[in-house]
């Protein structure tokens, strides 16, 4: 474990907590893409299948349980509990255009042709594009609540910090995972536009309004 990965995991944890608090306090999922949250639930489910077969640490196991659990609670909030506030008219990204190519790529490009490894690879590739429906929704509605912007900033920062973690681990541990690094770069690049708006606008108290 290194500081980059720890701060990255905490940023990821914070993002999820911000989202859940926003939903619970405002009793609304307005502006949140249910499709992205479904993709995140798929990402965690397919990545943490080794939850019961390989033990790394208490931290690792507890975080995995938390991420899987909260991802399903979030989907439940959007499609059941706070369904009347779900804005399906603006959450129209065609996720099949993500899942099919990502599934095909995971089948062709992986570290080992085994079920668990292909599912893990699928999860890594899917996570890199899972935020697209959410970013698409923000561009369609033309704006995002500031709390949603904070959620996106924390979520985008987590994988950017993981890039630093991989640089650190490469030089100090000789650890290198090309699939995770490439997908992590794609994932972080997708946030660049948002990061720019967040830093130039939200931090000055303005609202984000992506070009609709």
């Amino acid at each position: 474990m290194n500081i980059f990965r720890l701060v990255g995991d905490m940023s990821h944890l914070l993002a999820i907590i911000i989202l859940l608090m926003k939903m619970w306090k405002s009793r609304s999922v307005a502006g949140i893409s249910g499709k992205s949250q479904i993709l995140f639930a798929i990402v965690f489910t397919t990545r943490y299948l080794d939850l019961f077969t390989s033990f790394v640490s208490i931290y690792n196991t507890s975080m995995k349980v938390f991420f899987i659990g909260t991802s399903y609670v979030t989907v439940y909030f959007i499609y059941q509990h706070f369904k009347p506030t779900y804005d399906s008219n603006h959450d129209t990204f065609r996720v099949e255009f993500l899942i099919v190519p990502v599934g095909g790529l995971a089948f062709l490009v992986n570290h080992e042709f085994s079920l668990l490894e292909i599912l893990w690879t699928f999860s890594i590739y899917l996570e890199s594009v899972a935020i697209l429906p959410q970013l698409f929704m923000v561009s369609k509605t033309g704006e995002a609540e500031s709390i949603t912007s904070h959620y996106l900033f924390a979520l985008g920062s987590y994988r950017a910090l993981y890039l630093l973690n991989w640089i650190y681990r490469y030089y100090f541990e000789g650890f290198f995972d090309l699939i995770a690094v490439v997908a992590g770069c794609v994932q972080t690049i997708l946030y660049c536009d948002f990061f720019y708006l967040y830093i130039t606008k939200v931090l000055k108290g303005k609202k984000i309004s992506l070009p609709a």
Binding site: R5, H111, E112, W120, Y162, F175
Partner: peptide, 10 residues
């Protein structure tokens, strides 16, 4: 035994 990078990250 799986030869790829070890899976110890989230």
């Amino acid at each position: 035994e799986f030869s790829g990078p070890k899976k110890d990250e989230l």
